[in-house]
Each structure stands twice: as C-alpha cells, then as structure tokens.
Design a protein around this nucleic acid. Structure first.
Lengths: 198, 198
DNA sequence: GTAAAGTGAATTAACGTTCGTTAATTATGG
DNA sequence: CCATAATTAACGAACGTTAATTCACTTTAC
C-alpha cells in the first residue's frame, strides 16, 4: 500500500538521513538503514535520489541551509561593534545548542569531505559568515590577525559542544552542563579585556 | 613467503591502521585495506588482533599514548603560572602540528566512540591533562570557570587545524597557513589581557 | 460519467561486490 | 619438532543498486 501523501516522502527521507549521517557518518549508514528509519523499502529511495552520494550531498546541503543567514542576523551594522560581537557569539551558541546535528555533520565534513564538498562548504557556508565577522573584528582591533581571531572565537564556542559526549566520563565534566548563554558569556568574558585594551 | 622479521609485523599493522582510521574512520576502512597497505594478506591480521574492533581500539590507544605525558611536561610547578600557560599553549600547538593523525582520531572518537571507548578517552587522556591545567587556570584567575576556560583554550588552539582542509576553499583562508608558534602566540595574545585584569 | 490509458511511487526479488572472519594448509625460525 | 605466522580458499552476511511488477491516483477519450 503506497503512502497516501507521497509528495513529502522526499523531505522525510532527507530529515531522517540528516540525523543518521550526523550520528554515524557516510560509511556508517546504509541505504537500508535510511529506508527502514523512514518506513519504506530501500529501492524506494531511488525514486527520489540518484544514489547514496547524491542523497548524502542533498542531506548536508539541507542541514546547512539558512545556517549562515541566521548567524549573519547578528551582524547588523547599525549597532555598536561590541554589541555585534556580543550578539554574534550568543547567536553561535544558540545555533549549536538548538541543532546538534548541524555541528556533527560539519565536523564529519571537515574530516571526510572531498574537494567538491569542501568547496561547497567553504564557498556557501564559511565565506558568507567569516568575511563580515572578520570585518567586525578588524574594526574592533585593527592590528589583530582577524583570520586567526575569527577561527579561535569559533573554536571557543564550539569546543564545549564537541566535548559533550565525553563529559560523563571525566571527573571535571561530571556536572559540566552549561547553558548556551553561560558559554557565550564565558567566551565574551575572555574576549572583552582583549578588545578593550590598547 | 613469510616476513623475515615477523616480530614487528604487529607494530607495522598498528602504525598503518592509525593512518587509515584517522583518514577514513572505523567504518571507512576495511581489514583488506589495512592488510594491503601493510603488505600482507587479510587473514594474517588475525594472528595479531582478535578482530577489527580490537585492532581499532589498540590503534587508538597507541596513537594517544604519551600524548598526555608530553602535554603535562609544560605544567612544571617550579616556574611562574603565566610561563606555564605559555609553555602549555605552545606545547599543544606543537603536538597538533607534528602529528595530525592524533587530532583526527580524537575528533572521530568524539563523534563515534561508544561508552567504553569514551571512558578510556576521558579517564586516561583527558583527566590526566585537564585536572592540572584547570588548577593552573584557577591559580591565575580564581573567580573564573576553570572548566569552561580549559575547554575554550583547547578549542582556540585546535580550531585552526580543524579548519585546515577547508582553507583552500575559502577566500579568507587562501593564504591561511600559520606556524604552530604563530597560533600559540595569537591564542596567548587573547588570553593575556584576560589573566592580567582584575 | 465512466472506462481506458498513463504516471509516479511503492513493492519483492535478486544481481554482483565487498565485508569481516574462519578453515585448512604451508612455510619459517628457535 | 613445534610454535608462530604467513598463505589460499571460501563462507555467510551486508552492501549499493537494478529489474520487474503492483498499486493508487490523475488525465484523457468516448
């Protein structure tokens, strides 16, 4: 018995695949896994995607869609630079907090992606956010290495989420849960003296 | 014709497997891949390791061996705290710079490891370094959240290496190569005002 | 208005390949 | 001579994918 609403099967496949690929990686997920999770038979996937590689690429693109736009919302030029920095850092923690699949997919892409997928990632995700962010940092501290600085700030924000799986297995991390606001505030507490200095 | 020096076949397997697992992940590497890279037949692997899982665990353990000890060398209590911080940050960048397989394996473990492997990682790698590092940070700034701070500093150091694959595909990262010393100095430049303040 | 034809998405069955692994055997070094 | 480590052959399972078919719904024809 075919689905009564076949028109959104494609979206259900993509949403399911995003979660599975984020959890287990490209090689760790089979077409049968995806089909079973969606509730259809494996060959039905090929009515919507040419092959596994195409399905994976579309899943990644979907997961990354709007992310850069949402991050850029904080970089509105009509507020003070320090306020922009504050909003941007809080925006980053909020995005990472709300959708962990995005971060896991990103980490996997940085480890596994071929040149073509890296180009997509760099051109349409990274460039769009990093360029205006670097401009903001340059305005706050002209003599700084804005490139390294932008990377380091992203690393500060991201690291806590990256280490979350290991927190229950370390003595320091047993009660390590911090809210997105706490993390953003801790990052800004480190950054503020640096940007306020000469 | 068997190898004339079978006693070090095991080590050759481990060294080869570390590189392959770091590059392609657990599911992305087959026993045939490893055997071919070593130059032996696939069943010969089972003379040295019970199965793929055991070989993987031993490869990870080997890759992580001595890492914590090497990092702890910088935390000698007979030098000023700020000097310890300086040496530790430079030590971290040096370790990441010299052996990229370590970082890639670590990233993959944080994404893929089960509870047992996470326990090994947390107990024998993280705890050993993070506890003394947190004590150092607490001595430098008692009112700080030393746990978050230790994570953020590690994130600052690590991020540049994590993003290296994407640098050729971003406009900001085209000529992005920085030496280990440059990265450590940039991190310390951000941290110093924070630890010098009230 | 209803039957025929067509379309798209689902199914089951099955293909060739690769996977991790075992069995049986052979050769080597102490 | 015996333990160790290598080999070739092969097993069953899972892999990505294709083929053939069925089913439901839409469009067309009379």
């Amino acid at each position: 018995m075919p689905s009564p609403h076949p028109q959104n099967t494609r979206e259900r496949i993509l949403l399911t695949a995003i979660g599975l690929f984020a959890d287990c990686g490209y090689a760790g997920v089979s077409m049968r896994d995806i089909a079973t999770a969606v509730g259809i038979s494996p060959p039905a996937l090929y009515n919507h995607f040419a092959n596994k590689e195409a399905l994976y690429r579309e899943a990644v693109s979907t997961a990354f869609a709007d992310k850069s736009a949402r991050l850029l919302q904080a970089l509105r030029n009509d507020v003070p630079a320090l306020t922009q920095l504050h909003d941007f850092v809080h925006g980053m923690t909020r995005e990472l907090d709300e959708d962990d699949r995005f971060r896991r997919l990103l980490q996997r892409e940085l480890l596994d992606a071929d040149a073509q997928r890296l180009t997509f990632l760099g051109r349409f995700i990274f460039d769009e956010v990093q360029q205006p962010f670097m401009a903001l940092l340059k305005s706050l501290r002209p003599q700084a290495d804005a490139f390294l600085l932008s990377e380091m700030i992203f690393g500060m924000v991201k690291q806590h989420y990256e280490l979350q799986p290991i927190h229950p297995h370390t003595t320091a991390g047993i009660d390590a849960h911090r809210s997105a606001v706490q993390i953003a505030d801790a990052v800004l507490a480190v950054l503020r003296p640096y940007f306020s200095g000469d």
